[in-house]
């Protein structure tokens, strides 16, 4: 199992300290939540970990290997996947096309280290087509397979991003508000999907404003406020932390 290790990550935008000395780790098979108010720096952590921005300081390691200096695509090849809060779908391709591109890109490079597994399948060997179909099926997207993604509602488009990321077979995945735009029913099913993915061995770092979902699925939580981790622990510990209630959850949660 590979583990994502983030240590002392700091990101400064001009005079604005967006992320300050954040450390956390995500092991395979684990769901770790990262929550906090708007502007706390959650997306910035994701950007720095995936190499989309260069942090001011700090270290990112995956499966023991330091990936802090690698460009984004090499981090992906090392087994790191992600989705985006502000969607980055391939809006002129179909739903199937999006997932297919993810898979085709993965087939065009060779993996260095880390395991190469489709966590949605139970270890079975899959042809490319059946892997795409399997992903669509598990994300409830089969019915929409031929729709152009640009025309889909937010919730579904987020699922497409997840499917596309899974097609690249990451060992750790960063999900940025994946459930916003889903209705209550869909959110429940989505929670079950996350649990089954982690059950199969995928490590998940989850940013989500739906506190119910977060408390439900996460093994542990970190709370971010003004770029600093103000609390860590499991759901109950965090819920009872006064600072967290103050900064984020508010009374009555």
């Amino acid at each position: 199992m590979s583990t994502l290790e983030v240590s002392d990550l700091t990101v400064r935008f001009g005079g604005n300290l967006a992320v300050s000395k954040v450390s956390l780790s995500v092991a395979g098979g684990e769901i770790v939540g990262l929550i906090g108010p708007n502007g706390a720096g959650k997306t910035t952590v994701f950007n720095a970990v995936s190499g989309v921005i260069t942090p001011t300081s700090g270290k990112v390691a995956l499966a023991g290997r330091d990936i802090s200096k690698l460009p984004t695509y090499k981090r992906a090849r090392a087994g790191l996947g992600r989705t985006f809060q502000r969607l980055e779908v391939f809006s002129s391709l179909s739903v199937r096309g999006n997932v297919q591109v993810g898979l085709e890109i993965r087939k065009s490079w060779s993996r260095r280290g880390g395991c190469d597994r489709q966590y949605l399948a139970d270890g079975a060997d899959l042809s490319a087509d059946s892997e795409v179909s399997l992903i669509l099926d598990r994300l409830d997207l089969l019915g929409l397979a031929d729709e152009i993604v640009g025309a889909l509602p937010t919730g579904q488009a987020r699922l497409v991003e997840l499917g596309r990321a899974l097609a690249a077979r990451p060992s750790i995945i960063l999900l940025d508000e994946p459930a916003s735009g889903l209705d209550e029913n869909e959110t429940t099913r989505f929670g079950e999907l996350l649990r089954s993915l982690s059950g199969a061995g995928l490590g998940i770092l989850l940013v989500e404003h739906d506190v119910g979902l977060v408390m439900e699925v996460c093994d542990s939580l970190h709370v971010l406020d003004f770029g600093t981790v103000i609390a860590s622990g499991d759901a109950d510990e965090v819920r009872q932390n006064a600072a967290v209630v103050d900064a984020y959850l508010g009374a009555g949660t």
């Binding site: 190499g51 460009p71 992906a76 980055e88 779908v89 391939f90 297919q100 591109v101 890109i105 690249a168």
Partner: peptide, 23 residues
Amino acid sequence: AWGRRLTAMRDSPVACATLGLNL
């Protein structure tokens, strides 16, 4: 597949990079 990949790259370069594509 190559053509599809180009379309994808035009739509979202950053997503392609997070999938492991060397832009």
